[in-house]
Design a protein around this nucleic acid. Sequence first.
DNA 1: CAACAAATTAATCATTTGATTAAATCAATT
DNA 2: AATTGATTTAATCAAATGATTAATTTGTTG
Lengths: 210, 210
Amino acid sequence: MAKKNETKKLDISTEAKIKEAARKVFYKKGFAATRTRDIADEAGINLALLNYYFRSKQKLFEIIMLETLSGFIQNVVILLNDEKTTLEKKVTEIVSGYIDLIILEPEIPTFIVTEIRSNPNLLLEQLPIKNVMANSIFFKQHQKAVADGLITEPNPLHFLMNLIGLIVFPFIAKPLIMGGSGLKLKAFNELMQQRKNLIPIWIKAMMRAK
Amino acid sequence: MAKKNETKKLDISTEAKIKEAARKVFYKKGFAATRTRDIADEAGINLALLNYYFRSKQKLFEIIMLETLSGFIQNVVILLNDEKTTLEKKVTEIVSGYIDLIILEPEIPTFIVTEIRSNPNLLLEQLPIKNVMANSIFFKQHQKAVADGLITEPNPLHFLMNLIGLIVFPFIAKPLIMGGSGLKLKAFNELMQQRKNLIPIWIKAMMRAK
DNA sequence: CAACAAATTAATCATTTGATTAAATCAATT
DNA sequence: AATTGATTTAATCAAATGATTAATTTGTTG
């Protein structure tokens, strides 16, 4: 076998081409509906090369899935563990960061939702979100805000579900929203941009409600 | 051909058995990952009977999908067009109705999201949500509440996205939430039950925020 | 019961699809 | 140029899969 670094340029070029094609097709259609031939065509390579570089459709998928999941979730985990930011600041950063990210890659949320359904265990146990979350700065700050009477609902899961839901749900329901309202893509995205300002205001109001 | 009513009992029995099995498997795995043999096994019938009664996997799927979609969406459309209820009452009814419904059939939201991705046009154009929505009582009530200064954000789409998102998102993200928090199903459902009371309070607070 | 249509089954088909193989090409090294 | 190993291709395989067919069973009607 050739050592990777001796032919790195070419390796990266072909291997990366396949990976990018796979990402695109998997994002759009999901694992079950994706044909390895679709990926090969999208990448402009011979079908056998896919198996040459990645052994199987499943293996290739797992690479894409793991990269996507960790990129998407670790993002928020890091922000939630920032000691230097207030709870309020965390909210605005998460909202703004996620909305921008999802507008760039709009298929990711639905991709994650769809594929985790088929295999909840495998993928979730790879990522140590459980421990990281339980000891997060966010949880401590939330707890304190509850103690100080600034937040009514004591369960931080509601806070998180609401925050992420308000951000992500419109993208997941995008086809329904666009179809049901007649909005075009540009108008939809403008609506999402508005939410960068609106969601933090809403969250603040919700959490104080009783 | 025998007329349907002459052998109705048996027809319904077998045909319905297949449909119920199809619903179950499609809900769980989605169209692409479902094998007609899975459905046949689940229904306890011979594979050929599926095609005998429904002509093809696609046709059978479309029946299930249409029933599911209209059941799920028409539900809210009707509530939104009730002249006799206030905006506030509409919120509590939608929240309560949907959460109960989804706890009974937890795979529906993800099923809809997944399958509309593969075919946004076909299915949405079958349902006349566009017209019904634009002229809904809800829209008028919302408009009035904005004029009266009771609601800050004038776009009713934000209202709807927030309401439905707060209800539905936790179910869509259920595997992630349960995996990330360690909650068991029963605890998760209790959390959802809490939200029947919480969401209306939150919505009210959000809509008045500025 | 005879006759006929409907319902059901077992067997099979044709395609699709993920994967492999063997040969060909390319690129670097001597 | 010859050698060697990595990369790429065309052809093909075997299994899976949606669908059909032909025969059998069941049920109804005259």
